[in-house]
Design a protein around this nucleic acid. Structure first.
Length: 597
RNA sequence: GUGCCGGUGGUCUAGUGGUAGGACCUGAGCCUUCCAAGCUCAUGGCCCGGGUUCAAAUCCCGGCCGGCACACCA
């Protein structure tokens, strides 16, 4: 725990993140990423985009963060995101009012649907008591608490709108157009990186539970009957799984296996989910999560969201607790079906059959000049009912008359007027609703994981040193360049040139000539800069090539190499194509008296 | 949202009913040929509002923020 406090202190002091709006007293649940943190977060997002958008061949969009109420009626967030709370006047405990009623009253299973007033009544009628202290709850107000931020769109009372509670809906609602863009071909995937908002009752644990956070989500649209993931790509990826069965068992344990075996043995039900667990495993490794403090945990049955058939979380260990940093859900056709029902558009794709098929179809072509005068305003509904009847029960048209019900009234029509016939139609395909596989990542939590997993302390020459062991690709600054001492104009001049040329090469560089060389190394260690280049006198001496020293952060060891090689070697190491150790084989170590323990 | 505890320079912290010290950091200068060295100088603070009092950073009340526990986490 002491280490966590030090990390939080470092995060504030060195500008990784801090509570927002401090000048105005602060706002709970909102954090600002400082210069170092914003850079680190940006690098995480870039790495995510590289993997989940570019390498997987998906398309990225950017949707608005405010959406109208209708979207959330369809998605289920308006109802499902609500909590009814009742507070005990005696002991102050808050309870889920709907749960109390469901427990106490026979025959009520979904109290939430009853509304606040009715729930208050029920509490009074049934004399419900506080489960904690036993005091009477009758008469206590029931408060509706929705986790979505509400706003209004347009002037005046306008149209109600909400800050999106997940980026996913921005993708789902645009499906009809995205489908066009994908030329109607499944499978295709759409990604989005951006903020989402939840008005948490009680934001906690620093940056872990906040009210505004960044999600990186992929919605993979598939044909459930035909599309299969390229599991071969991740067959051998080793993962630590924590299936529901193990969580429920008394002596439950992790299952260390490979993606291929986990699918074969049915531990992971959905091959698509398994595929993305494999992809995610490799991605987390790449960005620098400590894989000994990482696992995939299956949701317990009671924990799953309304839409999820099977769901796994990626979790990282933070100060002894496991936190969710990504979720992998097989959402089925839930979202697209709902938006199809609630909206004007069609949320399906047309799936062509291998061969067109011929079907016999019962059709009616009612004589409206007869139905109109006879049934007046109901005529159109009657015609529609006739077609429905023809679909369901063609034999009903065999007699002289046929009867249909519309709004509880019976209408009898001459078969002749209905103009019934059976036609042969050619169908070249059908409209299907794609299923959705959703890997959804929390960016801020990933950033925090990298900070905590990377935070290290060791001893150099008897002094405690703290450093952030970030992956070179993720580090806010790639390399720092120093003149060994600042009162030598030649060293300063050369170091300035070196930092300029590295910047030209597209490397993120910090130049620093303030304070002793040791202090400058420590400064960079604290913000995770993986490499430091120092220009010293030795490198300028002689008639050979000019050389500089290159120091690696974690080991604090140095090598000496020609200044002309620096940019190339750094680029190779940043790309992950070369390690510092390999450099050590080709260049001379620098003899220093630094000892790291 | 409830309960308990807390809030003093950028960070960590001492302190008293009479408006505050330290350490580190930071900046300027000196020194310095590889790991937070030293010297000089400098910047910078009592969370906000109300009350009690001659006087409040200190006591009281409320708010805001934070930590922990409970509740919550679709």
């Amino acid at each position: 725990m002491a280490e966590q406090n030090e990390l939080m202190e470092l995060a504030k002091r060195r500008g990784f993140f801090f509570g927002s709006n401090g000048a105005y007293g602060g706002t709970a649940g909102f954090y600002t990423f400082g210069p170092e943190g914003a850079s680190l977060k940006h690098n995480v997002e870039s790495a995510w985009r590289d993997q989940f958008t570019v390498r997987l061949g998906n398309d990225e969009i950017e949707a608005p963060t405010i959406m109208p109420e209708a979207v959330f009626e369809a998605s289920g967030h308006l109802d499902g995101f609500d909590d009814m709370l009742v507070e005990c006047a005696e002991c102050g405990e808050s309870h889920r009012a709907d749960h109390l009623i469901e427990d106490a009253v026979e025959g009520i299973e979904d109290a939430e649907a009853l509304g606040v007033d009715r729930v208050e009544e029920l509490i009074r009628e049934h004399d419900l008591a506080c489960p904690t202290c036993g005091a009477d709850l009758a008469g206590e107000p029931v408060e509706d608490f929705n986790l979505m931020f509400e706003t209004s769109i347009g002037p005046g009372s306008g149209q109600p709108g909400y800050m999106r509670p997940e980026t996913a809906q921005g993708i789902f609602v645009e499906f009809p157009r995205l489908k066009e863009y994908a030329r109607g071909q499944l499978p295709f995937g759409v990604t989005q990186i951006g903020p989402a908002y939840r008005n948490e009752i009680s934001p906690r644990r620093g940056i872990i539970r906040v009210r505004e956070f960044t999600q990186a989500e992929l919605e993979q649209f598939i044909d459930p009957e035909e599309d299969e993931p390229p599991l071969g790509e991740v067959d051998d990826v080793e993962v630590t799984l924590y299936p529901a069965t193990e969580q429920n068992a008394d002596d439950g344990d992790y299952v260390d296996t490979t993606i291929g075996e986990a699918v074969e043995e049915g531990i992971i039900g959905s091959p698509w989910v398994a595929y993305y667990l494999g992809i995610a495993q490799e991605w987390y490794e790449r960005v620098g999560v400590d894989m000994d403090r990482f696992r995939f945990r299956q949701h317990l049955s009671g924990e799953r969201a309304h839409y999820a058939a099977d769901c796994w979380d990626a979790e990282s260990e933070i100060s002894g607790n496991w936190i969710e940093i990504a979720g992998f859900a097989y959402r089925g056709d839930y979202d697209l079906t709902k938006h199809g029902e609630y909206s004007e558009d069609r949320f399906t794709v047309f799936k062509r059959y291998d061969e067109p098929i011929t079907v016999e179809k019962a059709v009616v072509d009612p004589d409206m000049s007869a139905l109109g005068p006879e049934f007046g305003g109901a005529a159109a509904d009657v015609a529609e009912a006739l077609q429905e009847l023809a679909d369901e029960d063609p034999e009903a048209f065999e007699g002289d008359e046929v009867t249909v019900d519309v709004d509880g009234k019976s209408y009898t029509v001459d078969t002749e007027v209905a103009n019934f016939s059976v036609e042969e139609q050619t169908e070249s395909g059908e409209h299907i609703t794609p299923h959705v596989v959703e890997p959804s990542f929390g960016v801020g939590r990933t950033v925090y994981t990298l900070l905590e997993h990377g935070y290290s302390e060791d001893e150099v020459d008897g002094e405690t040193r703290s450093y952030l062991s970030l992956a070179p690709e993720m580090a806010p600054t790639n390399v720092a360049v120093f003149p060994l001492v600042s009162n030598d104009s030649e060293l300063v001049e050369v170091a300035t040139e070196v930092s300029g040329s590295l910047r030209e090469a597209g490397i993120s560089v910090t130049y620093d000539d303030s304070g002793s060389i040791g202090r400058r190394y420590r400064r960079q260690d604290e913000v995770g800069t993986p490499f430091c280049v120092t220009v010293d006198h030795e490198g300028l001496e002689g008639d050979g090539k000019q050389t500089v020293t290159l120091r690696e952060r974690d080991s604090a060891t140095q090598i000496r190499l020609p200044v002309d090689d620096v940019a190339g070697e750094l680029e190779a190491m940043l790309a992950g194509d070369r390690s510092f150790d390999e450099l050590g084989d080709r260049y001379d170590d620098v003899a220093t008296d630094v000892t790291t323990t």
